[in-house]
Design a protein around this nucleic acid. Structure first.
Lengths: 258, 258
DNA sequence: TATGAATGAGTCAATATGACACAATAGTAA
DNA sequence: TTACTATTGTGTCATATTGACTCATTCATA
């Protein structure tokens, strides 16, 4: 029996049979830690640049499914609600220098028609995850899969920094008509937990009382018992998202102006 | 000198040299007529289905430019502000039956690897235009390029109906934080003109006084002289968009909740 | 000059927002 | 037990916004 090929080599040689040419997906995964917004990045075995967990679309696969599969494959994160937010299509998105080096080092024959050397359009998805709940694992092409502060991003591949910034911008816009937090918080949480998320996403402080009033007016929360932290102060109530109402609000929006 | 090829035949044979495989753009052009929202559709010479003015992305072209070029080429409409709103990527978007008939009728050789028979992802753009201002002309592939009522759409190709509906949905959402009307109205217009646009887009009536108050509060309008229509009633003021403020609002948004 | 239609401007109650105040805890220290 | 502190639930209050109206004005026509 033939020895297993190098998976990267296999991908370079046979990828064109499996994947759509010219189309990729890039996932911007936001996570929280100590009230800081983080983004999940991969670092390839072969390069020093960091990158978003992105990949390609199979020839017979919905792009939404592709985004989810790519995320699962490259980071191990599963069952994450991904939201498409923008498609990026500058003509020379990709620099092929590193790629061509890889061809040489793996002794893979190629020419300028090779599918990976073509220009790609990338469909951007974002998601919000609870930092503590997930355990990112790099795939075999990557040596690292770790969280990075948004204000201390390392050197990023191609236009991935632009993609991250656009994702954040769109996310902030949608905060006005979409609820947030479902998979960001444990089953039960305090109002302060939720407020911290909004404050972190918006990068500014919100008034405690007003925030509470507004969120409760959306009617997507159920109040539970009290939560005794052991802190020397009044115990806060716990809340949970009313799933039905939460997802209805995700679909229908939280009420409009016009 | 060789006779000019059939342009369609030329496109089928050589398109793969010029265009990205697997990626297309589709434009949803909304227009107004008698307070009705219309959408611009093409009908191919060879088929009975109507379609959005869509096309392909050149190998070295920004997707935004592709959308504008495609629109210009296929409908004659130029200098239109197109807004990307969603990318559609179900795996079997395209039915190739009609296409294969075309291959046969033009006696173009093909196999299942032909670039046009591959699965396509389509990037959706929308725009709003003043019905009276533009004069759509079908390209040589099409026998018609006409406006259609949204509530009386003809049979549409592929998923184009879904694309139109999504465009309208996104447009309505953006009405809450983006100004509308710049290229929809003449240089000067009445408050009623503008209100009609909003009413048509939202498909519901708005209170005259409240609408005026709200729009004026955005601070994107300059009041001009009065306009004497000849009607037997008080003459309305004319307004014009303050370009600087209008486009700043397009960029920055019209004020948020959180 | 009277009339009808549409407009600019205003009223007013209901609601939402932003900035605070204050009493009610839960633990800790005395 | 009792003070003390941090944090929370709730309330207030001025201000802004919204939705549903009214009303006088003004234009062309009869």
């Amino acid at each position: 029996m033939k020895q297993k090929e190098n998976p990267l080599k296999d991908f370079l040689l046979k990828g064109h049979l499996r994947y759509m040419p010219g189309v990729s997906v890039d996932n911007v995964i936001f996570g929280f830690h100590e009230n800081q917004l983080k983004v999940l990045l991969l670092q390839a075995n072969t390069g020093k640049f960091w990158m978003l967990p992105g990949g390609f679309v199979q020839k017979n696969e919905h792009i939404d499914e592709a985004a989810a599969r790519v995320l699962q494959t490259r980071t191990g994160l599963d069952n994450i609600f991904l939201q498409q937010f923008h498609t990026f299509g500058q003509p020379r998105r990709s620099s092929n220098k590193a790629l061509i080096e890889t061809f040489h080092s793996l002794e893979v024959p190629y020419d300028h028609d090779h599918w990976l050397l073509q220009r790609f359009v990338s469909i951007g998805y974002y998601a919000l995850v609870e930092y503590e709940k997930v355990h990112p694992q790099p795939d075999e092409l990557s040596r690292a899969c770790t969280w990075h502060d948004l204000d201390k991003l390392p050197s990023l591949l191609l236009d991935h920094k632009e993609i991250i910034m656009k994702a954040l911008e769109e996310l902030r816009l949608r905060l006005n008509y979409q609820p947030v937090g479902y998979n960001l918080l444990p089953e039960q949480f305090t109002m302060k937990n939720l407020q911290s998320i909004y404050e972190t996403l918006l990068d500014r402080e919100l008034d405690r009382a007003n925030f509470s009033r507004k969120i409760l007016s959306f009617g997507i929360l159920d109040r539970k018992r009290k939560h005794f932290t052991g802190g020397a102060h009044k115990a806060p109530f716990l809340y949970s998202f009313n799933q039905k109402k939460y997802f209805r609000a995700l679909e229908k929006g939280l009420g409009r102006d016009f």
